[in-house]
Computed example of a mutant assay.
Amino acid sequence: MSLKNKLGLGVASAALGLSLIGGGTYAYFSDSEVTNNTFAAGTLDLVANPTTIIDVDNIKPGDTMLREFFLENNGTLDIKSVVLNTSYDVTDAKEDNDGEDFGKHIRVNFLFNIDKLDAPVWSTTLYDLQNMDPKVVKNKFDDIFGDEWDHRGLAAGSSDRMWVQFEFVDNGEDQNMFQGDSLNLEWTFNATQKNGSER
């Protein structure tokens, strides 16, 4: 056999050996498994029911208006706290209103004990409520609900009953400048979630 043939046979043998070695790696058992994973965020859905808490006309100094409403958690996550933001605008019936703000004469009495509705837990005017730091309002709400609110918050699927009384304060003085005035009140309840936890 010539040298050329011997070299060719050697190369062919080496190639066959490499292919057997390479092919041998596929002879071991193997298996695979695919996992499908999901992350679904929960929802915060705070609802005030009814959405119009008060709608009255022809009020006069000394009038009080008691209203009931519910804060409902229609979401899937528990609510830790609720902060109330207040804004209003006044339409003056007269051009000269002596610089008086109608909101300073509308008092809000937040009531919690249904058996003692004459004893408000917290009273303030709409004017003060509008200009109050939201953190102060939150602290007041926490005081109203006490320990139960602090520990439970507003659980998903639950509701809390609220009582509020509006009062056109009779200050014993001439309040004729408010005749015909109207006040548009907007209350925004802002909910925050409870702290994250190990899941």
Rank of each mutant, 00 (worst) to 15 (best):
N36F: 15
A40C: 05
W149T: 13
K4N: 08
A12D: 00
S159E: 15
W163T: 13
Q179S: 10
E100T: 06
T43M: 06
T188I: 13
K138F: 07
G22L: 13
M132S: 09
D78A: 00
L20S: 01
N190Y: 08
K135Q: 09
D63A: 06
L154G: 02
I114N: 10
T124N: 12
S32E: 11
G153I: 04
N190L: 11
N176H: 08
V169H: 07
S182Q: 10
N184L: 13
F112H: 12
T192M: 04
K94S: 14
K94F: 07
W149R: 15
K135G: 06
A191T: 08
L3K: 09
A191K: 03
S81V: 06
E33P: 06
K60Q: 12
D101M: 01
D55R: 00
N171P: 07
K140L: 10
L66A: 08
Q130H: 06
M162C: 08
Q130T: 10
S30H: 14
V164N: 04
H105L: 12
Q165N: 11
T124M: 08
L44V: 06
D92R: 14
L183W: 01
F189T: 04
L126V: 03
Q175Y: 00
V11C: 01
N5S: 11
G172N: 00
L154R: 05
G180E: 06
T124D: 14
G23Q: 02
